[in-house]
């Protein structure tokens, strides 16, 4: 059944309260299932924090104060510059791994087909999955920030409001990519494969291997047009610099505006 074949007629006989109760039950169930896959849950929740701690302790050089670098980096440690990258990872892991794999596995096992015979509104399936993945993103971000703060005395963002805005829009953009994969991937394994194929280039553009001042100018230019690269750059600006990352935020908005309707249009239940 295609999304188009499930017209969003107001479900007669079902009140809004019924719909909310169904959505709550489904979300609770999906959270439980997420936590019952310990490997995947650990990856989504702890990976950004582990990344910060791992890089920080494994490479002593990253804890030395930077000198001879452009103004915004001056006086920081390289590990501090890893904070925006860790937050980008916290967005990308649930978006490109947890979310598409969960939806594609449901599709593969006929769970979506079974749900489509119940009065549950079809969108509720997607909403529940997005809530779970967003929850994972928030938990992973907090863990990474706490780890960076306690272990390496990483600074708080200079512009808290801008940082929050970037986190919201960045998550929106990268979740759009994840939903696009989830819309069509026929199996859990294919969703996982496609997700990883996108995940690593995204992390590259976010600066995983060339953090902050290390990133070559050409890569930085391309990177600002990718969802995770734009998010990472805008976060860096909000964290350490003074300006407003207008171009990067515009890029993120563009991804949200294009990807969400596209994913909804391409979505298949079976």
């Amino acid at each position: 059944m295609s999304a188009a074949a499930a017209p969003s007629v107001r479900p007669s006989g079902l009140s809004r309260a019924d719909g909310a109760r169904a959505l709550r039950a489904l979300t609770r169930s999906e959270v439980r299932l997420f936590l019952r896959d310990p490997g995947a849950a650990f990856f989504a929740l702890a990976f950004p924090a582990v990344l910060v701690l791992g890089v920080g302790f494994a490479f002593p050089g990253v804890r030395e104060t930077l000198t001879d670098v452009p103004a915004p980096w001056d006086g920081l440690q390289l590990i501090h510059v890893f904070v925006p990258i860790a937050l980008a990872t916290a967005m990308a892991t649930p978006a490109l791994s947890t979310l598409p794999v969960a939806i594609a596995t449901h599709r593969e096992r006929g769970v979506l087909r079974r749900l489509s015979t119940t009065p549950l509104r079809p969108q509720a399936v997607l909403v529940a999955q997005v809530v779970v993945a967003l929850g994972a993103f928030v938990v992973a971000s907090v863990l990474a920030l706490v780890a960076a703060g306690l272990a390496f005395d990483a600074p708080a963002p200079r512009q808290v409001g801008t940082a929050l805005l970037v986190l919201v829009l960045g998550a929106g953009a990268i979740f759009g990519v994840g939903l696009l994969i989830a819309a069509r991937a026929p199996k859990g394994t294919s969703a996982s494969g496609i997700g990883m194929l996108v995940y690593f280039p995204m992390l590259f553009f976010a600066g995983m291997w060339t953090p902050g001042p290390v990133m070559p100018e050409a890569v930085r230019t391309v990177s600002q047009y990718t969802p995770l690269g734009a998010a990472s750059q805008a976060l860096t600006t909000a964290w350490f610099e003074g300006g407003f990352p207008a171009l990067q935020l515009l890029v993120l908005v563009a991804y949200v505006v294009v990807l969400f309707p596209l994913a909804a249009r391409l979505f298949r239940w079976t």
Binding site: V9, S12, G13, R32, L33, R109, G110, P119
Partner: peptide
């Protein structure tokens, strides 16, 4: 035209529709 109205009153057991492997019976 109004699938939701029917679905509340019609139960369906579909071929080859399973459940998540880790979901328990009562849940």
């Amino acid at each position: 035209r109004d699938p939701a109205a029917v679905r509340a009153r019609l139960g369906m057991q579909l071929q080859e529709a399973t459940l998540p492997a880790r979901l328990r019976v009562r849940e």
